[in-house]
Lab assay of single mutants.
Amino acid sequence: KKKPLTQEQLEDARRLKAIYEKKKNELGLSQESVADKMGMGQSGVGALFNGINALNAYNAALLAKILKVSVEEFSP
Rank of each mutant, 00 (worst) to 15 (best):
F74C: 02
E21C: 10
A13M: 06
A64V: 00
V71A: 06
L55N: 01
Q42E: 15
A60E: 09
E73Y: 01
A18L: 11
K3Y: 12
V69L: 03
N56S: 12
A35E: 03
N59E: 11
N50I: 00
G39V: 04
A47P: 04
Q42A: 15
Q42G: 11
K23D: 02
S70N: 14
V34W: 00
S75Y: 04
G41Q: 15
K1R: 08
P4H: 15
E21H: 11
E11A: 14
A18R: 11
Q31L: 15
L63Q: 05
L67Q: 09
L10V: 12
A54M: 07
V69W: 01
I19R: 03
L10S: 08
K24E: 02
L27K: 04
V71Y: 00
D36E: 15
A64D: 04
V69G: 06
I66V: 08
L63V: 09
S33G: 13
L5F: 06
G28M: 09
V71R: 05
G39L: 06
A64G: 10
K65H: 10
F49T: 04
K24R: 10
G46P: 07
K17D: 02
R14T: 08
K17S: 07
S75K: 03
P4E: 14
I66S: 09
L62R: 14
L62S: 11
E21W: 06
M38Q: 03
P76W: 03
I66N: 10
K2V: 10
P76T: 06
A35K: 04
A57I: 10
N50K: 07
N50A: 09
I52L: 13
G46T: 15
Q31G: 00
A64F: 00
E32G: 10
A57P: 14
A57H: 14
K23F: 01
L5P: 08
L55T: 01
D36I: 14
P76F: 11
A57C: 12
K65E: 12
K24N: 00
L48F: 05
M38G: 03
N53C: 13
P4V: 14
S75V: 01
E8P: 01
M38S: 06
R15L: 02
E32N: 10
N25K: 15
R14I: 08
N56V: 02
Y20H: 02
E72D: 14
G39E: 09
K23G: 01
K17V: 08
V71H: 08
A18T: 10
K68Y: 01
L10D: 05
E32W: 08
S30D: 12
A47D: 13
N56M: 00
A13Q: 06
S33C: 11
L48D: 07
K1I: 12
L16D: 05
E32V: 10
A47E: 13
N53I: 14
L10K: 14
K1S: 10
F49C: 07
M38Y: 00
A61T: 12
L63W: 01
Q9V: 00
Q42S: 15
A60G: 02
A18H: 10
K24F: 05
M40R: 03
E32M: 11
L63E: 07
S33K: 15
N53Q: 14
E26Y: 05
P76G: 00
G39P: 00
N59I: 08
F49G: 04
V34I: 15
G44V: 11
N53V: 15
G28K: 11
A13P: 02
K68W: 00
F74D: 04
G51E: 03
N50D: 12
K24C: 07
M40A: 06
K65R: 12
A60V: 01
L27H: 03
K24S: 05
A64S: 10
K17H: 10
A13H: 03
V71P: 08
A61W: 09
V69S: 06
A18F: 09
G39F: 03
N53P: 03
E8H: 05
A47F: 08
S30G: 01
P76L: 00
L10M: 13
L10W: 07
L29E: 06
D36R: 15
P4S: 14
L10I: 13
I52Y: 12
G46C: 15
S43T: 12
F74K: 05
D12S: 09
V69P: 11
V71M: 05
S33E: 15
G39D: 09
K68F: 00
L55A: 03
L63N: 05
K17N: 06
M40K: 02
P76Q: 04
M38K: 01
G39T: 05
A60M: 02
Q7V: 13
A61K: 13
G39I: 01
A57R: 14
M40S: 06
A13I: 03
L62G: 09
A57N: 11
K22N: 11
